[in-house]
């Protein structure tokens, strides 16, 4: 079983987001970066599968050298080896193209992405990557089991749950319920020191999109308290003042 897990390097979930360059660039000053939480789930599920079935888990990250702290963490959690495509991940198409170029020659049985990265939330890499590799894809899965060359998965759908199968090789994207993330331990961190981290130069790719500008949501308004006696006025306030109904 040869598994590839796509790992994004994203701002910590508690980051206060600000922008620079006339609101076209995310301001990374003082920001802590972490492994994209959905990718951490993918990684853990990948490890669980190979622990049961044997095999390897490779991680791949599109990013510059500053992403290596997250990559080392992925290795400390248990990945066999890691690949870094030495380029700024400009958009989903670019990222998918880079990963596809590497994955093509490697014949992975199963490729995981997160359902989305928690920074730009595009949620496109899974589908794009599968298309570029000519593989089937199933996104937003909440469980996956492998039996021979068949994967059985579950995913949430409107008002219920879908159970489906697909043949390997396959590209999937992970949803929250997939598994519990694993915390690395010191032995894992030590082992990560000597695990291979291969740096690969990007393939040529045309830029297909560019961010024109970002906007922060309006600051939260203050709370208006209504006394119990005036509860009846709530509807008219929602109508006339808040204008939301």
């Amino acid at each position: 079983m040869k598994i590839l897990v796509c790992v994004s390097n994203v701002p910590d979930t508690t980051t206060k987001v600000t922008f620079t360059e006339n609101n076209t660039q995310f301001n990374t000053a003082g920001v802590q970066f972490i492994i994209n939480p959905y990718d951490e789930l993918s990684l853990t599920r990948g490890l669980e599968l190979t622990e049961k079935l044997g095999g390897t888990v490779t991680t791949i990250t599109v990013g510059l050298a500053d992403t290596e702290a997250s990559i080392r963490k992925a290795l400390a959690i248990g990945a066999t080896d890691a690949v870094r495509i030495n380029a700024v991940p400009t958009d989903a198409y670019f990222v998918a193209e880079q990963i596809a170029a590497y994955a093509k020659a490697e014949n992975f049985d199963l490729i995981f992405t997160g359902r989305e990265s928690i920074d730009y939330n595009g949620g496109q890499v899974c589908g794009l990557l599968a298309e570029m590799l000519g593989l089937p894809s199933v996104n937003v899965i909440t469980s996956i089991e492998i039996d021979g060359t068949t994967a059985t998965m579950e995913r949430d759908i409107d008002g219920g749950r879908e159970k489906l199968t697909a043949n390997l090789p396959l590209v999937v994207s992970a949803q929250k319920e997939l598994t519990e993330p694993r915390i690395p331990n010191m032995r894992g961190i030590m082992a990560a020191r000597t695990k291979p981290l291969k740096v690969v130069e990007p393939v040529a790719s045309e830029l297909t999109s560019a961010a024109v500008g970002f906007e922060l949501p309006a600051p939260k308004g203050s709370v208006k308290l209504i006394s119990v006696e005036e509860a009846g006025s709530l509807i008219s306030i929602l109508h006339n003042e808040a204008k939301i109904i």
Binding site: T14, E68, A69, R72, K73, A76, I183, P184, N185, M186, I189, R193
Partner: peptide, 29 residues
């Protein structure tokens, strides 16, 4: 638990990536 360590003099820069990884590991636990 939303703890984050104060680092007024940017002393994290004196730590290795491995130090920081170990710290975040224990903190996560």
């Amino acid at each position: 638990d939303v703890y984050n360590h104060p680092d007024y003099y940017l002393l994290d820069e004196l730590l290795s990536e491995e130090h920081k990884l170990i710290r975040s590991t224990v903190r996560d636990y």
